[in-house]
Design a protein around this nucleic acid. Structure first.
Lengths: 231, 231
DNA sequence: ATAAGCAAGTGTGTATGCACATTGCGCCGA
DNA sequence: TCGGCGCAATGTGCATACACACTTGCTTAT
């Protein structure tokens, strides 16, 4: 193997269009680009100091994963989701999560189990500190850890994909009242079922956990909903 | 995966890149473009009498749905799947199908139920005639009908997306021995459970149905496997 | 003989230009 | 005042051009 010149080590050697896609993905998932935002190709090209070509390719990819909506010759907008659609996604996500934790319970290695328990333990401090950012980040790791423990890489990819699309909404619901404490309690219940090796129980509790998060979000939407049915 | 607008099906005023994507999707799913095939941009452009631009945009979209693999500056190939990966997909598909039929059992309207039963009934003639093409087409309708009966459009899109990616493999296993008859018998068992309103039973039977299909495919792969682990 | 190095060729990645569909606005007529 | 028509502006869709990364085959040196 040859030693790379310094510049190649520091410089991002990935495709420009992929970098743009990743940035846009993050911004949509984080809510920095709210639903309904029009994405002007030239404007984005200027922003990334690129031409429209890689921007277009990034937008094409985002449209497949459903983060943006392309209306032929009428431009691209960040997908505007109705409360119904969001609830459908949460419902599906709840089932996928339940499925994952059931598989994970039966298939995870002792190492994976201890890693997950350690992760779970570490979340207590975040709840006490009320650190939503830290908890949000932990939460992602926790759930992805469960996906991986299914030892089914395809399932992992699917679950991560859906989770990504719900990111923008998931995070908001953590602001609801005592949702942080409740979330951790529910994680705890799931972990106890895993420890008992009861995959079905873990699955039921995970489903409940996700549906609780959904209904917390539902209350949030009720409160903040705007006239056009989006928020 | 996003649902295509209706106009794309009939009208010609569709995006060139979308038409190219659809054609390539079909050809990959049908096996006309076998796994590992290199997709040369200029060559495809010539074939569709277009420039490389819409071809590239189509390929970008296919890479997101996992049908092709883009290696930066090294071209695009039809995703070469290992038997392990295929089995993982079937396992996940089996669970998604089980989930869908469980939801469908509890939520389908009488109209949907009768439509599905009529569809199922019509498959008997195809089995007797040994018409694999007709059965394959019916099979798709049958399963998609179940997805739709979940009344969760997001779930429908997800399920169709996964089913699409498994198409090329699903079809081959129908050639295995008496798989056609067995498939219909399994459908029948699922339908009976639906008629009884027993969603869990329907789910278990559907899972078994999909896993049977997977193992039929597994036998097929055993027989036809090539040296590099793909087939 | 094998491996390293070099050079030409192929094909991807990005930029740019142009055509036209869509939209918004203003003008005109009822 | 209101609706229809048309024109201009905006921005997408596609074509084309070019630079350079990667590959391939040959040469050369050990």
């Amino acid at each position: 193997m040859t030693v790379l010149p310094l510049e190649e080590m520091t410089e991002e050697r990935v495709l420009l269009s992929d970098r743009i896609r990743n940035v846009l993905t993050d911004e949509i998932a984080s809510g920095a680009l709210p639903a309904g935002t029009a994405l002007d190709e030239q404007q984005l090209a200027d922003r990334f100091s690129a031409s429209r070509t890689p921007v277009r390719e990034a937008l094409r990819q985002l449209s497949v994963s459903g983060l943006v909506e392309m209306r032929p010759r009428r431009g691209v907008i960040v997908t505007r989701m109705t409360p119904e659609r969001i609830m459908e996604m949460f419902e599906a996500m709840a089932e996928i999560e339940a499925l994952c934790v059931r598989f994970a319970t039966y298939r995870m290695t002792p190492l994976e189990r201890s890693h997950l328990m350690e992760l779970h333990r570490s979340s207590e401090a975040m709840v006490l500190a009320g650190d939503i950012d830290a908890y949000d980040s932990f939460n992602r790791e926790f759930h992805v850890g469960i996906y991986r423990a299914t030892h089914n890489n395809f399932l992992v990819d699917q679950a991560i994909g859906i989770r990504l699309r719900l990111n923008a909404f998931r995070r908001t619901q953590l602001h609801q009242g005592d949702r942080l404490e409740r979330s951790r309690e529910e994680h705890d219940a799931v972990m106890r079922a895993i420890a008992q090796g009861d995959g079905d129980k873990a699955a039921r509790r995970m489903r409940a956990h996700m549906l609780n998060a959904a209904s917390a979000l539902g209350r949030y939407i009720e409160l903040h909903q705007s006239r056009d049915g989006t928020y």
